[in-house]
Design a protein around this nucleic acid. Structure first.
Lengths: 142, 142
DNA sequence: ATTATTTAGATGGTAATACGAACTAAATTA
DNA sequence: TAATTTAGTTCGTATTACCATCTAAATAAT
């Protein structure tokens, strides 16, 4: 048994702040993506591919999309030279999706820009508060 | 002068947790919206209209969209009977957008469902931690 | 007063997003 | 060897969101 709050209830202030924070952060990410003529989904895809080389179905799983949606997504990104499809050696049907040089460069740049945009927010907190927030969010994420 | 951290920098762990939390919350909201055949934008619109009756341009401002995008959004929502356009009395060009009865009902229901989905997350924290998180997010939101 | 300009929204055209269903080809299983 | 499953693509559709353009109303300038 836990001495935590009823898991079926959220204090209104906490719910509001979580939702507001989320919209704020997502808006920042969207803005960054838009500045590079990308969608939020493309930005997520770039982030996912920074340290993975998944097959199409796995990528769909990471992004929470249908396989058919990912086909078009990768088509467009490949047309821009950001990603490439490499045929799998052991399975003739499968492809490994990976970032190109340009893709890696863009992903790194975008990551830096996002950090720059989030900094003013977190900058409102002292280092100690930042640490506490990191821990609390981490605990919540499980 | 402030004794806070350099506003140009975010600790990696904090950035990651903020982004992960945001995607988690937004995914929850999207899922809830989808269960009612709505988009995230429509859900946001419903939330905005719960305590406002803005003109189209103001609504566009709230949602961060162009006026033309909002026209279609409201068209579709009105076709479903969720919102209505009421001609402004003092300005013949302007309309006030408002929720219908059905819109209010749906907005309330959706709000409840969102709370139910967020609860398991926040339930990982003790009441004291929930309070601290609320305060930290509030401070960050300014 | 009358014309000119600005403002509020709507409309039309375009591209991206995302889905489901149907399809092809390769790999497994029977 | 035939039947089935799996990986990915293609096709058709609806939504989303943009920009540019348009209409009508309101405000400003002459």
């Amino acid at each position: 048994m836990s001495n935590h709050a009823d898991a079926g209830t959220v204090p209104t202030g906490l719910l509001d702040n979580l939702v507001l924070t989320s919209f704020t952060v997502i808006a920042l990410l969207s803005r960054t993506a838009a500045e590079h003529d990308m969608s939020l989904t493309q930005l997520r895809m770039l982030a996912v591919l920074r340290d993975r080389t998944p097959a199409m179905a796995d990528l769909a799983g990471f992004l929470g999309l249908e396989r058919s949606s990912v086909s078009g997504l990768i088509d467009r990104a490949a047309r821009r030279g950001l990603v490439q499809r490499v045929a799998s050696s052991d399975d003739g049907r499968s492809v490994q999706v990976s970032l190109t040089e340009d893709g890696h460069r863009l992903a790194a740049q975008v990551a830096g820009e996002v950090a720059g945009l989030v900094a003013p927010l977190t900058g409102a907190l002292s280092p100690a508060e930042q640490s506490r927030l990191t821990l609390l969010l981490g605990k919540m994420l499980g």
